[in-house]
Design a binder for these strands. Structure first.
Lengths: 335, 335
DNA sequence: TTGAAAGCGCTAACAG
DNA sequence: CTGTTAGCGCTTTCAA
């Protein structure tokens, strides 16, 4: 008695365990007939492969490491939920490695990841915390980069936010805005700000660098504090672009508290298009990240690379889009 | 050349592999001196144990299965992030099993979990999707129940929301509310509603069962639709208790859209105290769940149970608390 | 196309 | 207290 193993299947079917192993892994050297017979029997008896044994002998597991700075930001949250579901479909296991916490050194996180012998790795944005991480990982595992600028020697699935950001700048300027703020938190890659200001500049908007706020902390709090700061200035902005939606939420609260009506006196644009954002009292104009597409494509690319480690690198670029809702409108003359 | 194994350590130190194994697992039968020597050498060479091998031979892995219906609700999100961090500290691996998706049968999920041979399981609320799950799991693994009513034969860490819910009812009634709505989504355990209505009844509030809305779908959408429904009724409520904060967000949007000022014409109470909730334009009055305490205690209980499988069951009960912010106020006379 | 045999890295009896 | 000895369940040579 005990659980069903390849050995027990072999005994029942009167063939060798290695044949079972091959049949189950769809090895072409096994006759379709025997294959079918073995499969049927395995299914009937509820055979479940032991991943530990498979990992031990083959040197790699069915684990896919998902490396993300944190989870509580809903963007990462949705990403990870997506990966969990995708893993389920591909019969893999998505394992989360959080980089955004203090007492964690590069060596520690590497050794933690290594000890799982993952079959592959999806590496989210991490530069601030762990420069050098991707180089180290690449030596041992197939790595797919997401949520960061593509790099030649890595497979990557990235989002080209340049057009949407330019469109946002353009849109705000068309609405008459000239004093346009920008708020970022510490997880944000600097790219968004750079692109946004370049776009503003090319539209002839006077330099708005003094309306930039960057803070570290919970995104909502960052947005709230930045809002209090920006909105109490004499040259307060008439529009603010937030590097993520949660910052926009905090900013909206600050505006509400200071009796600055949104969008009448302050237009707000976010970034991410969280499910929540459409349900704010003033639904948020924002740039949509194609989260599910990121998940789908990065998983597929990784699966390819796990199969053919030396295959040609893929660099997928997904579009993002400005979603106009109610938090933005034309500038009205000042009170 | 190759990676450091116990065998290679044994060769270098001139002792047997089993001594290495014992020293590394802190077996009391090894002399402190040799233990130290072995540890030092292992550290110096960067020895990393192979979890696959350990799991294979011992029959259980260092994986702790975390079973949750979904992740995108921030309550689960924070829970899982907490578990990931706690796992890191305990040198375990938190693995997420999502139950809230369609094409998943009880058998499938069981077999998936089983295949990982987790050392223990933390089981969140799941009754709606998978009755019978906990009974099946209990036969094979140490199980700790969270986010659900305690059951005698299981270790559990639960939250006693009764006092906070009674306090909420009492608070709303003191503010003068009599027509009090209640909105739930499909993940919610029925307990909250039952407790709330019992409390209202004992306060002499006329029956409010017709102001109850229960829907399935994304929480924000549920709240929004429920809001549209409730607020357009002739006997519309002056206060609504939402079974979670995201529902409250949706409800707030509906109120805003229908020009029902919050809290002046509609008081809203949520449940969870998400980080977000304090940053809504009208900061939400809500019942706080002690998420980090749930994580900490359930992990400790599980660790105990993994060590002593036959130990006495623990039933921890944590308090929740009403957090009063700005979304609730006294009833004003009707327009 | 299938079978035999070796061994992945580790743990856990059992001896000494 | 330490060493010897068997495997855990599976993959993967190598032979047949």
């Amino acid at each position: 008695m005990g659980r069903i193993t390849q050995k027990s299947l072999a005994r029942m079917l009167g063939c060798d365990i290695s044949t079972i192993s091959r049949a189950l892994r769809d090895d072409p050297r096994v006759t379709p007939a025997t294959k079918a017979r073995i499969r049927a029997c395995a299914d009937k008896l509820g055979y479940v492969p032991d991943p530990a044994a498979a990992a031990l002998v083959s040197g790699r597991s069915r684990v896919v490491g998902i490396i993300l700075p944190e989870l509580r930001h809903i963007f990462y949250n949705e990403l990870f939920e997506g990966f969990s579901r995708a893993a389920l479909e591909h019969d893999l296991v998505a394992e989360l490695f959080l980089t955004g916490f203090d007492p964690l050194t590069l060596e520690k996180i590497i050794s933690r990841i290594r000890s799982q012998r993952p079959g592959g790795i999806i590496l989210g944005y991490h530069q601030l915390s762990f420069p050098g991480l991707k180089e180290r990982l690449k030596k041992e595992f197939p790595v797919v980069l997401i949520d960061q600028d593509p790099v030649e020697e890595y497979d990557s699935v990235s989002v080209d936010s340049a057009p949407a950001i330019a469109e946002t700048a353009n849109y705000l300027v068309r609405l008459g805005h000239r004093r346009i703020g920008f708020v970022a938190d510490s997880y944000a890659s600097p790219t968004r700000g750079t692109l946004f200001h370049a776009a503003l500049k090319s539209l002839g908007v006077p330099d708005t660098q003094q309306l930039v706020v960057q803070k570290s902390g919970r995104s909502e709090e960052v947005g709230y504090q930045a809002g209090l700061e920006l909105l109490s200035r004499p040259d307060r902005p008439t529009a603010v672009f937030c590097v993520n939606d949660l910052i926009a939420v905090g900013l909206m609260k600050a505006a509400f508290e200071l009796n600055v009506p949104v969008p009448a006196a302050l237009s707000i644009v976010g970034f991410d298009d969280l499910p929540l954002s459409d349900y704010l009292p003033v639904p948020l104009t924002t740039i949509r990240q194609p989260i599910q597409e990121i998940v789908r494509h990065s998983f597929r690319v990784l699966a390819d690379r796990m199969r053919t480690p030396r295959g040609k690198r893929e660099h997928l670029v997904l579009p993002s889009a400005l979603v106009i809702r109610k938090s933005t409108t034309t500038v009205r003359s000042e009170p």
